[in-house]
């Protein structure tokens, strides 16, 4: 940093009475500059660093995982959704909610809807489950009975009854099918979210 050729305009009598800078010995000047720069940088970087460290906490910690607490508890990621008897074997998709405990940072919510799915029973114990989250941008699709398709309200993606997207849909992949287990005459679904906007299914 060298001073410009012309001296800055004087602003007050006090400032103009002395030369712009008294020329110290060059070597001492360099050492003083180095020391001043180092000390100043440390003083500034420590608070900045610790603040940034705390700011990026969400990227290091994955909290708010759903605690399984539904009618005897979710087993290995499966949530009990409904009894088999309550689901007619007519192949028509029906809307269900996943109920579980949820933690939002410091608040614990007991038994709340944490996800939405469609269940479709086609045989004695043949049940398919589709996440209601559109793989495009996570809006919730709805089942339009008149045209027998799932419709996304955001960008009009259309999916067939078995979840295949139509050729003109913006969605990069079919609806996410979820694992289903029929245990003790009840339908259990392994509920999970996948990353949106990718053609591949990547757990979120």
């Amino acid at each position: 940093m060298s001073p410009p050729e012309t001296a800055p305009p004087a602003r007050s009598s006090a400032a103009s009475s002395s030369p712009p800078h008294a020329a110290p010995l060059p070597r001492r000047g360099f050492l003083a500059k180095l020391a001043a720069g180092t000390v100043g940088a440390i003083a500034a970087l420590v608070p900045l660093g610790l603040s940034l460290f705390a700011l990026f906490d969400p990227l290091r910690n994955r909290r708010g995982k759903r605690a399984a607490n539904v009618e005897g508890g979710a087993r290995d990621g499966f949530y009990r959704v409904t009894s088999l008897a309550a689901l007619p074997a007519d192949g028509v998709p029906r809307f269900f909610r996943i109920i579980a405990d949820r933690d939002d940072a410091w608040t614990h919510f007991a038994e709340e809807p944490v996800g939405s799915i469609f269940l479709r029973r086609t045989g004695e114990d043949v049940v398919q489950a589709y996440s209601a989250r559109c793989p495009h941008a996570a809006c919730f699709v709805s089942w339009v009975a008149a045209q027998a398709e799932y419709l996304c309200p955001c960008h009009n993606s259309l999916f067939s009854v078995t979840g295949e997207r139509s050729a003109t849909s913006p969605s990069p992949r079919d609806l996410d099918e979820l694992e289903v287990a029929v245990r003790d005459d009840a339908v259990w679904v392994k509920y999970e979210n996948f990353r949106t906007g990718t053609s591949e299914r990547i757990p979120a």
């Binding site: 940093m1 008294a22 003083a32 500059k33 020391a35 001043a36 720069g37 000390v39 003083a43």
Partner: peptide
Amino acid sequence: PATTFWPDQILRDGVACL
């Protein structure tokens, strides 16, 4: 003798801040 803010006073200020 008079000096300038940078680096002489800044060094002292920096040490104080530290």
